[in-house]
């Protein structure tokens, strides 16, 4: 359980985090989504007691992070997988965490096995690790104390497709066991696939939040026909909202309704599907366009949607 209440962090006049409030609940994966520089990492650093808030509060299991007597046993934190001393071996990195928390030495091997790092790999210096291996080591460190809350900043970075799949299964399993997972990402497809709840942030402010299914319920249908203008007219004539999208249209009518309307108008439909993959992406771009650093032009910015 993570509760963020009216959290604000100012650097001089710039509000990196501006009145952010949300909750990450037990048994659910909460995706913290936003473009780079939106304030995700700052929020997570405040949550983990590594930065101080200008105002507002962030609590883990009802307590300020800094007030937890042995935080590693309550909450596993991975904010940056590359922030590990390159001169230590992976195993030594885990041994230090295990000793700090006062855990039995056997936890080190258990964690290595859990994240799929071999014994030989664990004896190499972290400097020689790929980013994917560092992510696995960081996850192992976070899970070492068998916490009930996990906070991960961009955990999919540097992982190959199989690694991303592994990470997804691991987080899903953790949440299904009753754990709380909060992960940040700028990869929309990744979040859409795993998160039960989504908190979307842009320029330090929450722009949308709720269960993923609810946020996606507004997803639209993509219809393509040879005569797009007539198709648009047919859909609009039946009272549906229509947005042109190249040589197709997006509508808030369901696929069945859209298909029947096109059939009624005598139009041959060449493509008909829910715009699922693009749904959240559209919303993401739309919601953050006003506040995003990059001016979002007419051309959609390629994201990780294809991953």
């Amino acid at each position: 359980m993570i509760t963020i209440t009216s959290l604000t962090k100012r650097y001089g006049r710039l509000a990196a985090v501006d009145d952010v409030s949300f909750t990450a609940s037990p048994g659910r994966v909460t995706g913290f989504l936003g473009p780079n520089g939106a304030g995700k990492s700052t929020t997570l650093r405040i949550l983990a007691g590594l930065a101080t808030a200008t105002s507002g509060s962030a609590t883990v299991l009802g307590h300020r992070y800094a007030d937890l007597p042995n935080p590693g046993l309550e909450i596993g934190v991975l904010l940056d997988a590359s922030a590990q001393h390159g001169g230590r071996t992976g195993r030594e990195t885990l041994v230090l965490a295990q000793r700090t928390m006062g855990l039995p030495a056997a936890r080190v091997d258990e964690s290595l096995e859990l994240v799929g790092l071999t014994r030989a790999e664990s004896r190499r210096r972290v400097r020689d690790y790929s980013l994917g291996m560092r992510q696995r080591l960081g996850i192992a460190t976070a899970l070492l104390g068998d916490p009930r809350v996990l906070v991960l900043d961009e955990p999919a970075n540097g992982l190959d497709p199989a690694g991303i799949r592994w990470m997804r299964d691991l987080l899903r399993g953790f949440a299904d066991d009753g754990g709380t997972v909060l992960l940040s990402s700028h990869l929309l497809a990744e979040v859409e696939m795993i998160a039960d709840d989504i908190v979307m942030i842009g320029s330090g402010r929450v722009v949308a939040q709720g269960p993923t299914t609810d946020l996606l319920a507004g997803a639209r249908t993509l219809v393509r026909a040879d005569d797009v203008v007539a198709l648009g007219a047919a859909l609009a004539g039946a009272g549906h909202h229509v947005t042109p999208s190249g040589d197709a249209v997006l509508t808030d009518a369901g696929p069945g309704t859209a298909g029947r309307l096109a059939f009624g108008a005598g139009l041959a439909v060449t493509e008909l599907r829910t715009a699922d993959g693009a749904g959240l992406e559209d919303m993401f771009l739309e919601l953050t366009a006003a506040t995003a650093r990059e001016a979002v032009g007419s051309a959609p910015i390629p994201t990780g949607a294809s991953a």
């Binding site: 307590h63 937890l68 042995n70 046993l73 000793r99 700090t100 006062g102 009930r148 066991d177 009753g178």
Partner: peptide, 24 residues
Amino acid sequence: TATLRAVVVPRRTAPVPFRRLVGV
């Protein structure tokens, strides 16, 4: 594990003793 993880208050843990920090 499910029951353990679902608990939403911190475990009763002792603070990390200073001696252990020195060792680390």
